[in-house]
Design a protein around this nucleic acid. Structure first.
Lengths: 208, 208, 208, 208
DNA sequence: AATGAATGAGGCTTCATTCAT
DNA sequence: AATGAATGAAGCCTCATTCAT
């Protein structure tokens, strides 16, 4: 085991196994929900034995934590990259929405359901989510708003609350969609544009 | 038991008992979450025997459904009453926010957590919530927006999506708060005003 | 309560109530089986409250015991009356079968199922049944066989075992029928004759 | 686990475990009856954990079904073998009785009680019993009677009913014995002979 | 490293029975 | 005498987790 090549091979294998298990977990969680899913379900999906799961994850909750881990939440990184650019407000706003709103679309928002559902009830998960997903998202947005505010592009409202309201809108729309709202489902792709508009201009009719 | 007086007494007692159980359930659910709460917990809190719960509720899920029942969700009714009035946009918007944002404040949003958490995972509950809470909220708001739109007060954007975005913002803020966001917690009471402003005017600086 | 008329009235009422409850019990037991039937089922069928049952019967088992009580097991009395007569062997044998084989036919043998099923597992019930039903049946038959044996009509085989075999045949046929044997069901009415013949003559071809 | 040696070992172990559990179940069921026996009772007797039972049997009823499974009901097969032979009627008849009458003697008929008791009340069990035990028994006997009838050894009575009456006699005797009849218990070993005689010749005195 | 058999704690639910009215 | 609300013991079963191989 002192052979560094071997060691790194082992390591790579372990990483692969972890990924394999997480993929299975995501799939089954999305299908059946967290509490309804058994370790056996995941093991079967990953084509492993029950016990093997526990070599890579301490317990069932750790699987959910694993899903939230960095490599899988690359979302906000790409976003923050975008935020550095110099596009106009509407474009940036739209881009800000696009990522999260579309991210969950592929699996029909099932995974969103599972994660949020469990987050609401599990403290550790909640903190992780706040740190790894919500926090960065808010900070990124905040920085942007602050810059715009300094540039006099937007009115210097309470920025803390404003960015939280915007982020909340995204979360809330995902929530409503997850609850089976038909109207949202039908027009989902128009959301980024509509909302960006709403946030930038408000609902009030523009004075001529 | 053909005695009508006695009968109605019994009936009243039954109603009281139901309420007593629901109160206990709300309390314990809020403290421990749905899955973690046992029937025994609720029974103890209600100062009743386990079995008694089942005289009034078919099963554990029915307790959660009970929490969503009309008398306890009177919220949106009062709101819709408000919406009939002729106040200016900002005031109405603020009122629209006020109700839900404050409703859950008293129990530290714990109940919101539990309900949403379970809603995301339980179809029946989800449908009930959509029918009894979200639906009315959306319809009420939609009617308002439509009226304003006709009056030329607001720009005739996609109203369906707009109202959902607004409602989503409320839900999302509750969600962020439930996840332990400190900033929100500190400034919660300023939210209605800030958000109403945001929605009405947007973030863009007013052209002079 | 010292009024003897009143007292006897009370008493008569009590007897009627008992009967009412037993009738209900018989009906529901036959429909659903002993273990599957709840006191509530019986109470509902008897149009009484649960608690009332317990004023007349100590517990659920007592209801089954009640079903076996004399007035309802008048069977063997009529039979023993028949046995006194001087008919030929075949007729008597046939009569001996007729009563029990037909008694349970009316409720589709469901009650037989329930009683036997529980008898096999409940000692007290077993003893009662042996005393009140099986015993008299055996004794009646035994007396008859003995008389015939003395008269030289039948061969003096082991009478104890013979009568038990005959009674067993009856029980066993009821059992087979209860198990859903189609052939038996179709030809049930021919049984008394066929069996009487079998017992009297055996299966062996008569020597010319 | 692709190792075939290992796999077959596992398999053998599983079979053994099943047997171990069934043995325990038989023992406890015989002692306490089906409904009174808890899974814990069986687990304790088998020296296993409660949950382990469920790896091998779907539920409590499956344990009873297991008891009726082929390897344990090999009885009638041996009997049918006997029926092929060319012994005289009396011997065959006696053999026909011998097997079932003695099979249950070893455990004091307790198992018979439990099985029959539950069969009467459980449809699935009833069908299995009819298929696996009673059916073969009847068919075997029927074939025999029919052959004899063609050979002119026995009188061509209604063979369907006759074989059912004979089988019924066996069942009924087991039932009487199970109910605690002392006389039967004392003379149980003489039964096959006595009954064979009864069935072959009937009770009527032979005409000289 | 992987397996999967075994574990056993724990929850939901039913229902016979009691007892205050 | 009748009621039926309340009781609470008890059982079946699930499933996360462990550990010997």
């Amino acid at each position: 085991m002192k052979d560094p090549v071997k060691a790194s091979l082992q390591e790579q294998l372990a990483v692969a196994r972890r990924a394999q298990i997480l993929d299975a977990a995501i799939k089954v969680f999305a299908q059946k929900g967290f509490h309804t899913t058994t370790i056996k379900d995941i093991a079967r999906e990953a084509d492993l034995a029950d016990g093997t799961i526990y070599k890579y994850f301490e317990n069932k909750t750790a699987l959910l934590l694993g899903i939230l881990e960095p490599p899988r939440t690359r979302a906000q990184q790409e976003m923050s990259f975008l935020l550095e650019s110099d596009a106009d407000i509407h474009s940036v706003m739209k881009a800000f929405m696009l990522q999260p709103l579309m991210a969950f679309k592929k699996d029909n928002f099932e995974l969103f359901k599972v994660i949020i559902s469990e987050i609401l009830v599990n403290q550790e998960l909640r903190e992780r989510f706040h740190q790894q997903v919500l926090g960065p998202m808010l900070q990124g947005g905040e920085a942007y708003l602050r810059r715009w505010s300094e540039q006099g592009v937007i009115s210097p409202q309470n920025i803390d609350l404003t960015i939280r309201a915007i982020a909340g809108m995204i979360l809330g729309l995902l929530l409503e969609q997850s609850m089976g709202d038909q109207t949202l489902e039908a027009q989902w792709d128009e959301l980024p544009d509509t909302i960006a508009s709403l946030i930038v201009n408000g609902i009030k009719k523009e004075p001529l």
